[in-house]
Every structure is written in structure tokens, then in C-alpha cells.
Design a protein around this nucleic acid. Structure first.
Lengths: 66, 66
DNA sequence: AAATGATGTAATGTATAAATTACATTTGTA
DNA sequence: TACAAATGTAATTTATACATTACATCATTT
């Protein structure tokens, strides 16, 4: 599941640890999600999107799919 | 995880079984997702969105959150 | 009334998301 | 160069998404 979490987080000058804290998961989980080798739950995706001031589509929807 | 899967599916005159088949999960899983008592994975959300010709935001993003 | 299709839901098993612990590597900075 | 903060990643455990089987209810059709 490729996504745009990492680039968005970095552009906000936020560390993985900080995002993890806001989202309520571990830093490792954020790392795995960013790596894209993971299939996160909807709840986690929503929490990440809120923390980064983005929507689900912004971060997880493949452009050109709609 | 409340969502707009059921209303969208019904408007397309699609049965749970038909959606399940297209998505590659069981009818029960679709039922549970529609019921909203489930926390589906991103992969499943994307597959459902594609099958219903919608995006993640259309089905799973709470309006007024962005 | 009986049969068929769609849906709701419950019990149990399996696969995997996420936590936890831990350590190595990278990057910036004093 | 030495130190610290951030990151990558691996092993193990725990919680839960999803499959499977099964049965009941409701609407439609014959």
C-alpha cells in the first residue's frame, strides 16, 4: 500500500515519533506504514490524515483511479 | 467506523454478495463493514471504493473533518 | 404454502495489524 | 570527532480483521 504519508509528514517538519504520539501508535507502526509494506486499518489511516491535516484521498488514494 | 457503503451499494442496485464477489471477500465481511462495527483494512476500503466507483473520501471520510 | 434470493448474525479458526523490546545506522550539530 | 536525535528494521507477542460454516428472518415469486 504505497502512500504519501512520509512526504507529507516531512513537509510539516514532523518526526515519526511526534506523529506516532498524536495518532496513538508506536513509532515503528508509523515507519512501517510509510514504508508502504503494510496494510493499515481505516482507523489508523483516518487518525494519520487528521494529524497531518489531510484527507484519506490526499494520502492513500491513487490518483487517476477515480 | 460509520461509512456510506450500504447506501452507495443500494443506489447501484448491487447486492452484498455481488459486491463481495467483486471485492474478493465474503458476503459476511461486507455486511459487517456496512454495519459499521468493523475497522476494515485500507486494502479492503480501496477495493470497495473501486467496485462502487467512488473514492475513499466518498465512502469513509467524515464530512466536515477537513 | 412452498421455494428462492437477499440479508442479519453468531461461533470458531486463521492470518495479519500493531505492540513491545531491542539494536544498528544515519544525520545533524556542538 | 564525539554526541544525540531520528530512523530502519528484526524478533516475538497480542489483538483483531476476515474466512468459514451455519442458521434464522424477510421479501418476492410460483
Amino acid at each position: 500500500m504505497k502512500n504519501r504519508v512520509k512526504i507529507t509528514r516531512v513537509m510539516l517538519n514532523m518526526t515519526q515519533g511526534e506523529l506516532a504520539r498524536q495518532v496513538g501508535v508506536t513509532r515503528q507502526t508509523i515507519g512501517l506504514v510509510e514504508k508502504g509494506e503494510y496494510n493499515p486499518t481505516l482507523q489508523l489511516c483516518v487518525a494519520i490524515a487528521e494529524a497531518l491535516n489531510k484527507t484519506l484521498d490526499d494520502l492513500f488514494w491513487e490518483v487517476g483511479k477515480e
